[in-house]
């Protein structure tokens, strides 16, 4: 689950890609550090790239200080979270294909519109060690049936020019999520997986319902702390503590 060098997160608008990507990057950096401690000399670093050219709000940079605390290099457009909606991609992206000591997380914009930005790096990605994750929340209207999920997979592959290699179950109702919701999501993804041959990589969600669901579903779990916040959620809300 954490063994690829390049980890690209795509999904439908509002599927929770950014939350998953950010938490994934933090986990990745912790594992790298552990590895570094155990076998001195292998200096693995982590970087996360905000590649959202669609949505000017709710972005990776919202969690920038938290990510940097973990020693993660955050690469984003100079315009992210400013008053300007220029979708310019930062040129540092290219350096990541050269700096092989980095493990990289790409947080891509929603739907085929967002996935388009991946396409221009297709050659670089295909010749590297990569995973293309497709994050699904079956409680979102455009991905609430296996048929719609398959349709979304198809258009994202079409747009990015790369095959999706793993599914991620991120089924949630935000803080109202129950274990049953996550299990329901898992079942639907199993169906999709059977038909498409794309395996489920892991399930993600708030720790409590996720661990409860983990009793039933047999996949790796990525508990997430909610790091991308609305202005009135800055302090004290549930999920602020990151316990990975």
């Amino acid at each position: 689950m954490f063994d690829r060098r390049i980890n690209i997160f795509t999904g439908h608008f509002g599927s929770g890609k950014t939350e998953v990507a950010v938490n994934f990057a933090i986990k990745l950096s912790e594992l790298s550090r552990k590895k570094f401690e155990h076998s001195a000399g292998i200096d693995e670093k982590t970087a996360i790239v905000d590649m959202d050219i669609i949505n000017p709000f709710f972005r990776t940079v919202d969690a920038k200080s938290e990510l940097e605390k973990h020693g993660i290099w955050v690469i984003s457009s100079i315009y992210a979270n400013t008053n300007v909606d220029i979708p310019a991609l930062p040129s540092e992206i290219y350096t990541l294909f050269e700096k092989k000591e980095y493990k990289v997380v790409f947080d891509v914009g929603g739907d085929d519109l967002g996935a388009k930005a991946v396409s221009r790096f297709r050659q670089e990605i295909l010749s590297d060690d990569y995973e293309l994750f497709f994050v699904v929340n079956v409680k979102r209207p455009m991905t609430d049936t296996p048929e719609k999920i398959k349709e979304m997979i198809y258009i994202i592959e079409e747009s990015s020019g790369i095959k999706i290699t793993k599914l991620v179950n991120n089924t949630n109702y935000l803080f109202d999520t129950t274990a049953e919701d996550i299990i329901e999501g898992h079942k639907m993804l199993e169906e999709v997986s059977k038909e498409t041959g794309v395996p489920i990589a892991f399930a993600s969600g708030l720790r409590k319902p996720l661990e409860e669901a983990g009793q039933v579903i047999k996949v790796p779990l990525l508990p997430i702390g909610k790091l991308i916040k609305l202005p009135w959620e800055q302090d004290g809300d549930e999920g602020l503590e990151i316990e990975i």
Binding site: I53, P87, A88, K116, S119, R120, F121, Q123, S160
Partner: peptide, 12 residues
């Protein structure tokens, strides 16, 4: 426009 055309600079 490599980004919105979805092409590498060369392909673009």
């Amino acid at each position: 426009c490599p980004t919105n055309w979805g092409k590498s600079p060369d392909e673009a």
